Amino acid sequence: MQHGLIKSMTLALAAAAFAPLASAQEVTLKVHFFLPATSFANTLFIQPWCERIAKESNQRMKCQTYPSMQLGGTPPQLFEQARDGVADVVWTLPGYTAGRFPSVEVFELPFMMQNPEATSKALWDYVGQYAAAEFKDVKPLAFHVHGDGVFHMTNKPVRTAADLKGLKLRAPTRMTNKFMALLGATPVSMPVPQVGDALSKGVIDGAVVPYEVVPSVKIQELVKFHSETDPTEPAFYTSTFVFAMNKAKYESLPADLKKVIDNNSGQALSGLIGKAFLQADAEGKKLTAKNTTNVIPKAELENWKKLGQPLTDAWVADMNAKGHNGKEMLDGARALIARHAAGK
């Protein structure tokens, strides 16, 4: 009798000991993005992030990635998909929905960005100070920018603004489209996945993207010329990106898994992604070796800065009209970029 009692108590204690393990929540996050699985964005940033959260959660939280819009919809709809829970985590460009995120467009103004790692950290800080309301419907995990934009042209290189006159040129965001128009081009807005088809069919004469995008679109096979800007100068354009999570999904996580997400988001992750994109640029550029590359000199870029100034002035005025202090936001963005570039 006593032996049976001890045995049953032992079994009960054993069951109690294993109960937390049995009931430990396992979570699969649906991660949705617009580039293919082979893209540098996936191999250098999204997959490593997924591996870290799996490891730090003892494999209790894992990703199921859906590259190339495999969950449906279009790239401009990704933000809504994170908001509405169609996906748990998305990676997209705020600029794909023109005018919806005006505060962060300051980072897409001409000649703002020189170092993507520092500028990505600055962007995270800037959103916290000036633009949190624009992203209140999701849980931001990171904000970042890409490396220097490059002209990829089918028939002739870009050496001066005059070379762009009358050419149809793809650009990613409202600000860059406006800048291309000021330089004399006819801007054509489209997400990256459409660029290859548009180049091959002659719908556009060229595109501005960083080298990082080259392999995803096979740009090196579709154009003959690559025109960079003087590397000592800030980039003539960059784009902002957001890596965001569905709020309800985050809130549903137990405290320890929330902590794993918290430890893998924020300013540090933003900088890490910016650094990965710089690495990706170097890899993408290697693929263009057989084509012709030129550098647009500093003297010509000074002319471009003057041509682009009305765009900066208009952004400040637009922010003022929306009840913000546009000049303060512009100065704040520049100060944050400079501070992080100096390693402070």
Rank of each mutant, 00 (worst) to 15 (best):
D331H: 07
G284A: 06
M112C: 02
L109K: 05
V260W: 02
L141S: 01
M329W: 04
G184R: 05
P254S: 08
P231K: 08
K298N: 14
A19D: 10
P116M: 06
L182E: 15
G266E: 07
P310C: 09
I46R: 00
E117K: 10
A118D: 01
F107C: 05
N294T: 09
D125P: 00
V217I: 15
T173H: 00
P231S: 12
F243W: 10
R334E: 13
T38H: 06
L182C: 06
Y126W: 05
P110H: 08
Y96C: 00
F101M: 07
P140I: 05
L35Q: 11
E328Y: 02
M190E: 08
V86I: 12
M9L: 14
A37S: 09
F45N: 13
N115V: 06
W304N: 09
M1F: 09
Y66R: 00
F33W: 06
A41V: 08
I6T: 11
T160P: 01
H32Q: 02
K305M: 13
K247S: 14
A268N: 09
K201T: 15
A280E: 07
V214M: 04
A161K: 07
F277Y: 09
G184I: 04
G128A: 05
V188H: 03
Y250T: 10
A41F: 10
T173F: 00
K275A: 12
K258W: 04
A37I: 06
K224D: 12
N155T: 11
A299H: 06
G332V: 07
A268V: 13
A15N: 08
M9E: 13
K136N: 10
